[in-house]
């Protein structure tokens, strides 16, 4: 269960990373930074407004703030590197992570912060003889809803159709009359929004601190790389795998020091056998 609730927030973060990569062909190193911003905004707002409303207002505020930062990053940095090689894209977004990390420490300070789950989802619940925290169930439910939502968006809307088209040929897309620059900004904003949702949802379940950007980024990379960058199903499978392996490692007293190591061993193993991930497509 701990595994699945970990898988839930990791999936939400990883699916954003994967979506952005799928459409824009850029690995966004700053994805974890967006997640961290959202978590801090949620904690600050929630602790000020109290248990009943705080979380929900925090969610709204976090998505808006993070989305805005995302749009800014897309316009200032990413637009200039779409046509460049991976090297430049990695370094450019890496620079953003450094800037955000410094800014977050200045604005929110370096101390850990915590908050309680919203009233609606506090406490625990007995099911078939086991006790589950209601908030964990909420996290899992939210992840499933987001998975369904992203899928519907991609396969049932004109926006999704355009995103899929951009994946294969953005030049042809703009020659077909679609404003690709705006489409890319939109996709990046959606990606930022997903990072934000991940950050919001994780805030009541973990201490929020200034190292959470790189912690989550590494796991999100592991997930989307195991599942295959750009694949939604891949992100889901990857998240469950990583979440379960991680908690399995933690539970066992002999292995709990190396829980994280297991994740990277699996990632390395998958990439060694299928360098493009379980559900990904080989790049030409």
């Amino acid at each position: 269960m701990g595994g699945l609730s970990n898988a839930a927030y990791l999936f939400i973060v990883a699916v954003g990373l994967s979506l952005v990569f799928g459409a824009l062909r850029v690995i966004n190193m700053a994805h974890g930074s967006l997640y961290m911003i959202a978590a801090f905004v949620t904690v600050v707002v929630a602790n000020r407004l109290g248990l009943a409303l705080g979380f929900w207002v925090g969610l709204l505020a976090a998505v808006i703030v993070t989305g805005a930062v995302g749009v800014l990053i897309e316009i200032v940095v990413l637009r200039r590197v779409y046509r460049e090689e991976h090297l430049i894209q990695l370094l450019g977004t890496y620079a953003v992570t450094l800037i955000v990390a410094g800014a977050v420490r200045i604005i929110f300070g370096s101390n850990y912060r915590t908050m309680s789950p919203p009233q609606l989802f506090s406490g625990s619940l007995s099911l078939a003889g086991y006790r589950y925290s209601v908030y964990s169930l909420f996290m899992i439910g939210a992840a499933i809803m987001i998975a369904v939502g992203v899928n519907l968006m991609l396969y049932r809307t004109a926006l999704g159709r355009n995103i899929r088209a951009a994946v294969s040929d953005s030049e042809l897309l703009s020659a077909s009359g679609v404003n690709v620059a705006r489409l890319f900004t939109t996709v990046f904003a959606i990606g930022a929004g997903l990072a934000a949702l991940g950050g919001v949802i994780v805030a009541p379940s973990q201490a929020v601190g200034t190292s959470m950007d790189s912690d989550v980024l590494v796991l999100a990379f592991a997930i989307s790389v195991i599942g295959g960058l750009g694949s939604i199903i891949g992100s889901a499978v990857g998240a469950v795998l990583v979440g379960e392996i991680y908690s399995f490692g933690l539970v066992n007293p002999y292995t709990n020091q190396f829980a994280l190591a297991f994740v990277f061993i699996i990632m390395t193993a998958v990439l060694t056998i299928r360098p493009w991930g379980l559900f990904g497509r080989a790049e030409q």
């Binding site: 990379f221 990277f264 390395t268 360098p275 790049e283």
Partner: peptide, 25 residues
């Protein structure tokens, strides 16, 4: 085993693996 982007991501995994060993062992 991987090239370019996937190579970079693999080095990240390896790096964290080595860090975990140094930190936890």
């Amino acid at each position: 085993r991987a090239v370019r982007l996937y190579f970079s991501l693999l080095t990240l995994a390896i790096s964290q693996l080595l860090f975990t060993i140094a930190f936890n062992w």
